[in-house]
Design a protein around this nucleic acid. Structure first.
Lengths: 189, 189
DNA sequence: TTGACAACATACCCGGTAGTATGTTCATGT
DNA sequence: ACATGAACATACTACCGGGTATGTTGTCAA
């Protein structure tokens, strides 16, 4: 989270743990595998929180709002993991050293794609129901997710001190995204 | 753009140029300075395109639309530079090696902040005029810019083949952002 | 003609880092 | 009591990559 994948050495991680390199390599065969563990944990968190919400009945748009809210809150609260994911996806798709690591990363990327598809499907349903207005589904999904993810980049815990609660932040981001998709209804929870 | 700052070696850059390391170090004192050159070029492009639009008279909201459109198009067309900026800002704020390089990076970061302020000021003006509806100015600006920047991440030239022109993409992104800010008027150029 | 300098190319150095090989300790089963 | 293996710590290796030192070539002014 703090220094990025490639600029953080295993010794750095060990030092932070008050531990040693030997210990880390006892549990993880390589640096890339350690990263994969972080990635996997992040995706597990995401699925665990959002997947149940896709099963709820009723209005697709309202389901999407609930998903967006949960997702955004999750991005803030598990920000350390999510930043690692973001950087890692781009960095590793090219720079992955061994072919074996490539396949691991490919699997994780598929997992992230599946996660994004949860939103895409709901978005599509809400669009067909006439509750949203957008042109291209894929593009709308990308822009929406980027907006919802944005706290990963700019959120800082010190913001909490300036009168803004996390609830407040989440509502602002979700409101922006839903209005951006042409939603006309009420958004406040 | 392709492999990120820290994973790309000077030899890689030289190879791509059909050149050698010696040539690069003849023109740039360090890798960080080479990066700073890319950053500076990107920011120059941004200012050159958006700054004139801030001087136009009339409605602040319409000015913001013009700025957003120009900005988004610029992000797509100069994507190679902008990706480097994005990664570099985060990576260097922490990992900058020498204090000298830190000051260089600090100056460039201030330049980016000044660029973002162009949007923030116009956003504020449009909000006070009652044409936009948002809660916190800083947050609204961040989310809006993240959305406008999003093509940096997901745009790929092959998308152009699938019937989507760049004009089309820009309009979708700008429409999303302006509606997200509560703009009710017409957006189409 | 020559001296100087820009504009490189080549060869080299050296610090940092992923990964490994080899101890060492402790718990547990027999 | 003893063997065994997990769970580490320590010491070491190999390599990569930023940076430097040193050649080489062409140009241009005096």
């Amino acid at each position: 989270m703090e220094r990025g994948y490639s600029t953080t050495s295993i010794d750095d991680v060990a030092r932070r743990l008050g531990s040693t390199k030997g210990r880390i390599y006892h549990h993880y065969p390589s640096k890339a595998d350690l990263f994969a563990g972080v990635f996997r944990t992040a995706m597990d968190l995401n699925f665990r929180i959002v997947l149940p919400l896709t099963r709820h009945g009723g209005n697709a748009a309202e389901r999407l709002i609930a998903m967006a809210r949960a997702h955004t809150r999750n991005m803030i609260e598990t920000r350390a993991y999510q930043r690692a994911v973001w950087e890692g996806v781009e960095l590793h798709l090219r720079g992955a050293t061994t072919p074996e690591q490539r396949t691991t990363l490919a699997e994780l990327t598929r997992r992230r794609d599946a996660y994004e598809h949860l939103f895409k499907a709901t978005l599509d349903e809400a669009g067909r129901a006439g509750d949203l207005t957008f042109d291209n589904l894929s593009i709308a999904n990308q822009v929406m997710l980027t907006a919802l993810n944005s706290p990963i980049v700019w959120y800082s815990p010190r913001d909490a001190g300036s009168g803004e609660t996390i609830d407040n932040l989440v509502e602002q981001v979700v409101t922006f995204a839903m209005r951006g998709l042409g939603y006309q209804g009420d958004i406040t929870s």
